[in-house]
Design a protein around this nucleic acid. Structure first.
Lengths: 199, 199
DNA sequence: CCTTTTGCTTGACACTATGTCAATTGACAT
DNA sequence: ATGTCAATTGACATAGTGTCAAGCAAAAGG
């Protein structure tokens, strides 16, 4: 399965990432990936049984390369709830650009491929747990805004941090990544941290 | 063009809306639409040259039925900036469920169909003008939060009101439409209206 | 009443992309 | 030499969009 680390398999995964990360990446086809990996289209199926599986495995491989778990350490070790929220938002915000291409490809398959949809949902669900932990840390410190109960705040934070919002602000509105990070940090702080407790 | 109001054309448009609005609507095909309209698949092409064109025309037809312009009157006639923002957010929030199906179908074609993407972008751009007007009304009244310059606030409001956020909160998080409206109204007010000027 | 036009039907086909299969090749190991 | 493994090639199935030509039936118009 995903423990098969043959030469070619890695080459395919790398080729997939490169194509998905290309800015103009519209509908990456199996034949495109094969060409880039330097093998025949059919040979892809010797390693991945469907396009969806290939994309899913690619997300795992990308996590491995990016050491994505390490990014969350500052958030988990934060002392106060406010620090935790800030660290989490920053870590996630800077992670998005690296998984955006794959996310888009997987989301585009939602309608046609159940497995792809599930795989992506799973990741987003994991991310939501991070949101929940940050909100709970605020609640524990009694610094959570009284406007929203924790579960509600979690949903809202999750939505604010969605990849699609990142896409809209950076790609459609032309914001720089810095501007995005700065704004989303400010917005989440002002929305979820009780007034007067911001610092 | 869109002024051809033949019997069959209308039947096709209605069939398309019905299929797109169905909750389980996964990838509506030309043959599905034809069947529902009671004509042959090929006959669709006598009225609409491509699937993208059909979907685009369907959005126009849907606007006509929903009298979507009228929805914005309360927002345009609001006296204060705060009222205008509130009226606009409410009008748009309640409009989303009616165009969600078509939006999803058009967005799914982004990668493969340039025309579909453009048509949808145009609508979203129009909607952004409403955001801009609301923010400008706040700025004029000096009730805009000093945290964001107007252009910046416009982008942010636009993102907050995006259909994808609505989708995430209602469909994925299970919020009721009421809860969504209430929350988004509260969020936008607290974000964009200068503190102390909320009422 | 006959002819033309209009709107639709039917069947066939091109194209693109995914996925499958069988036969084959070339390298490397025993 | 023989077998095994990874990949190749060409052919084919399937799904969906879009095109084309031939035909048909009913309305329109002389």
């Amino acid at each position: 399965m995903s423990s098969d680390n043959s030469e070619t398999r890695i080459r395919i995964l790398k080729a997939t990432i490169e194509l998905l990360e290309a800015p103009q990446s519209k509908g990456v086809r199996m034949s495109d990936i094969a060409k880039r990996a330097g093998i025949s289209r059919q040979a892809l199926y010797l390693h991945f049984s469907t396009r969806a599986e290939l994309l899913i495995e690619t997300t795992f491989y990308s996590d491995e390369i990016n050491k994505s778990d390490e990014r969350l350490i500052p958030s988990r070790t934060a002392k106060t709830g406010v620090e935790r929220l800030e660290a989490y938002v920053e870590a996630w915000a800077n992670y998005i650009p690296e998984i955006y291409g794959m996310g888009k490809a997987l989301m585009a398959m939602r309608d046609t491929d159940e497995a792809a949809a599930k795989a992506w949902d799973q990741r987003m669900w994991d991310m939501k747990e991070g949101c929940e932990a940050a909100i709970n840390a605020l609640a524990r410190d009694k610094t959570l805004s009284p406007l929203y109960p924790p579960a509600h705040a979690t949903d809202l934070l999750w939505a604010m941090l969605s990849i699609r919002n990142w896409e809209q602000m950076t790609i459609e509105c032309g914001w720089s990544q810095e501007k995005y990070v700065k704004t989303i940090k400010s917005l989440t702080k002002h929305t979820f941290v009780r007034e007067g407790k911001t610092e």
